[in-house]
Nucleic acid binder design. Structure first.
Lengths: 230, 230
DNA sequence: CGCATGCTTCGGCCGCGGCCGAACTGTGCG
DNA sequence: CGCACAGTTCGGCCGCGGCCGAAGCATGCG
């Protein structure tokens, strides 16, 4: 009865070409701005705004303000799974993942850079996702925490976990500019970044926020986090 | 691009309350008539007809004529999976599976009966599904086949697989009246039915198409097919 | 401060599509 | 053959919702 109505409502949201286009563009887990989504859907910003509001209200999307931008992303893996299931029935091959050029044009910046006091770019995101996958940190939209396993790892990595003091913001997710996924910020992000510099794994590029991953860094990252930047 | 359009089209089909209602009613794998589907959706027959035609054209439903009835069912497990994924996102609990009374009112008939020369009812459907699950038979909409493993099983069960003669219709699915799922018909269905009588597993109920599963039958069916009629 | 930018809200246009009544096909039954 | 019943097709009504132009906030920058 009402479950039918709820199902229909959700499906109807996906059932509009413009909205389907936007959802599809978010399938890789990145977060995009309203303007970008309007562009990929081929509609004006005001129309997109309405769609995005409805998608968020229905719990399909999550929104995150950052300055004067608003980043939208799929609200949960369940949404992605649903979209995949629909595409399967629709007989549509998953989209060719067109390499839309977003973020900084500089390849080195996209690969690795600092964001204030922590690491960003593919490197920063890879570290965050590796630690999350291994259960060392738990990331939520509005915060995060280091698990006991994470404490152990950090100690072994040469980072002394914070005493009770400014615990609040110690482990915090931050939306990555170029990757549009979360990397680690807060005290933890800063400590990881500092330790990587200390170990000689990364070096600053003069006059730029970009950092260079050294040979030693590639080996160390592979061993410590299982990361392969490619 | 076009994959977005295909996805939107499919989702839009589910996105109508009436169609969602019908699809939901088919989630258990049974096949229902257009009239029944119209009834559960609370719309007239002519409106339902239009919906069903569109759903079939899009490959969400499969239709099967039987006399002057037209039975509709989900076209594939992928469709069921999609619907489940949508319901999950919609936060709707799967419908309480309201026990709609369909088919013959006689409980014995629903449990087990003969259909011409083969077994039907919960028993017939259970045998067909058990054999399909074990890879002994392969059932398609318009025919079926006994696999090598199935040949072995049948030999052990005391059935001599047909010689090349009337092979065509030896293994054939037949839509079950009360269960609205397929049971086995054709030469195979007849042979299985005959053997069950021969083994004393089932007995005819006088003046009725219903058959009774004996104590020996319950044990035998459990052992031979892993069936538990409950 | 004022301007530019990103996004939202409002108002109105318009077309798609769901709905039903009525009429038609086709199957089964006596 | 005529009747009953399941299902479809046709035609027309109507409302929901997508779309954009214009105007209204918010944030950031010089």
């Amino acid at each position: 009865m009402s479950s039918n109505a709820a199902m229909a409502e959700t499906a109807a949201l996906v059932g509009d070409p413009a909205r389907a286009c936007m959802l599809n563009a978010l399938m890789d887990g990145r977060a995009l701005t309203a303007g970008e989504l309007a562009s990929v859907a081929g509609i004006t910003a005001q129309t997109a705004s309405g769609h995005l509001a409805r998608l968020s209200a229905a719990g399909l999307l999550a929104m995150e303000r950052q300055g004067r931008h608003r980043y939208h992303r799929l609200a949960s893996p369940a949404v992605a799974r649903m979209l995949e299931a629909i595409m399967q029935v629709a007989g549509a091959a998953p989209p060719p993942a067109l390499p839309r050029r977003i973020g900084p044009a500089d390849a080195a910046m996209r690969r690795a850079r600092t964001c204030y006091d922590h690491l960003a770019g593919r490197l920063g995101v890879a570290i965050a996702e590796a630690m999350a996958a291994r259960g060392q940190v738990e990331l939520a939209t509005d915060g995060g925490a280091v698990t006991p396993a994470g404490q152990d790892f950090l100690t072994g990595f040469g980072i002394i976990p914070e005493p009770g003091g400014s615990r609040r913001a110690f482990c915090r997710p931050c939306l990555d500019w170029s990757e549009r996924r979360h990397h680690l910020a807060g005290g933890l992000g800063a400590a990881l970044c500092a330790r990587c510099f200390e170990l000689g794994w990364v070096k600053r590029v003069p006059q730029s926020r970009a950092v260079l991953v050294t040979r030693a860094g590639e080996a160390g990252l592979r061993q410590a986090f299982g990361i392969e930047l490619g």
